[in-house]
Amino acid sequence: YWDASHNCSAFVIGRRAELTRCSDDGEPSGTAGRPMLEVLLGEGICNVAVVVTRYFGGTLLGTGGLVRAYGAAVKAGLENSRVAVMRYGTRLRIGTDYSDIGRIQYILGKRGLLQENAEYTDRVSLETVVAAEEEERLKKELTEATGGRAVLEAVDRYYFIDKG
């Protein structure tokens, strides 16, 4: 918001808060960014950034009022947010014939893995996202269940939101 009086910010990066920063953006020193950062650190969440935008309306809050207002804004934002757990994993493409698709779907369902981008042509192809630490076990189980007929290909590796 370019026309705002202040866009104060704070962020925490890394599981052990290896990198933290905050900005008062023109508010008196220590009255905005630091209280915002303290809320984030107190909640124990990481890899998060917050910005609180304030338009000056003529009412002077004083330093104590600013500290309370900025901290309360971050608390309210967190209360109305969903904290997600990110996991590193692989998008795995599975190709098979129709005779093995039931076994594959059963295994994916048993593990709580979603089936995505299914294509039914002369063969069946589908994708799923699996956590990195589960990938080799899943590949082994699918290979054994299909007698080696399933073709497994890692399409991409990235962080994803763990819905479990």
Rank of each mutant, 00 (worst) to 15 (best):
S81R: 01
P35C: 07
S125N: 02
L78T: 13
E79V: 08
S125A: 13
A73P: 00
V50N: 10
S125Y: 07
A118F: 11
Q115W: 05
V52S: 11
R91A: 05
K140H: 08
L78M: 03
N47P: 14
A49N: 05
A73I: 12
E134G: 03
G30K: 11
L60E: 07
G42W: 13
E38Q: 14
A72H: 12
A72Q: 12
R123P: 01
A76H: 12
R93A: 06
G42D: 12
L114S: 06
Y55K: 02
G64Q: 11
M86L: 15
E141T: 07
A84G: 14
N47K: 05
G89M: 08
I101W: 12
D122P: 01
Y98S: 08
E116I: 04
L114A: 14
N80V: 01
E144I: 09
S99L: 08
I45F: 13
S23D: 06
V51Q: 06
V51W: 15
N117G: 12
R54A: 11
T96C: 13
Q115F: 03
L108Y: 06
N117F: 06
Y120A: 14
G148Y: 09
V50W: 13
D100V: 02
T63H: 02
A69D: 11
T59D: 13
L66S: 05
T31I: 02
R111F: 00
A145Q: 04
K139N: 00
E116W: 05
N47S: 10
S23Q: 07
E38N: 14
K75T: 10
G44D: 04
T146E: 08
Y106D: 15
V129K: 00
Q115G: 02
K75F: 03
E79S: 15
L142S: 04
R149Y: 10
A32H: 14
L41F: 06
A76N: 03
Y55S: 03
G42I: 10
T59E: 10
T143G: 02
T90Y: 03
R54G: 14
E116D: 11
E116M: 08
A49T: 14
A132R: 04
S23H: 09
G26N: 09
A69Y: 15
P28R: 13
R137E: 05
I94P: 15
I104S: 15
L61N: 02
D122C: 03
V67A: 03
R149A: 09
S23E: 05
Y70S: 12
S99N: 11
E27F: 05
A145C: 05
N47D: 15
L78F: 11
I94G: 15
S99I: 11
E119W: 07
D122A: 09
